[in-house]
Amino acid sequence: MRLKRYEDMNLQELDVMKEISSIGTSHAATALSKLLQKEIRITIPEVSILGYEETVDKIGYMEELVAATLVTMSNEVNGLMLFIFKKDLANAVLEKLVGVHIESFEELDELAYSALEEVGNIIICSYVNAFTQLVGVEIDLSVPGSTVNMLGGILTVPIAEYGYETDKLMYINAEFIMDGEKLSDGLLMLPDINSLNGILERLGVS
């Protein structure tokens, strides 16, 4: 059965997405671990299909200042990948890569900003790489775009982009664990509905 909306996915289909995400995020963690030269573990990701406000609540709050990197997907899967840094993960990265600690994202200088963008991009790319290998699809990724702004405003981007198809987001929530500390992040993978159907068909679950 072809899906019309994200929320039409049944438990089995969600389970498959979770399985793939688990492999994707562990690839992302490995990449991050190499970059930071630190052992990083991850928790098994939850994949949830959530409305806009629920997603904001899961990650933080509307006016919370966060950094985000966005990459668009094209070729056999069209859609968006969005990675959100909260302050704890951003600091873990910045301390290791550029030797700074920030109290607020407003303090980010150009170097720190591009360090975060690069890390966001690496996490997204390694996730998508694992994904393409598993599913057997070709995905082209755009160069990343980044911003530091209110969480609520950032999440309106995918909501508006697919607003004519769905009001939901696919939120992949794995926690990176570094030095025994859980670092919160938010990864959103948003294939358009056609692509999602294609993915599920290839995996033999639809």
Partner: peptide
Amino acid sequence: AKMFEMKGSSDFGNIG
């Protein structure tokens, strides 16, 4: 607003 400036795909995010 246009939250993300994507190099090479200026159409993206023009919804604002």
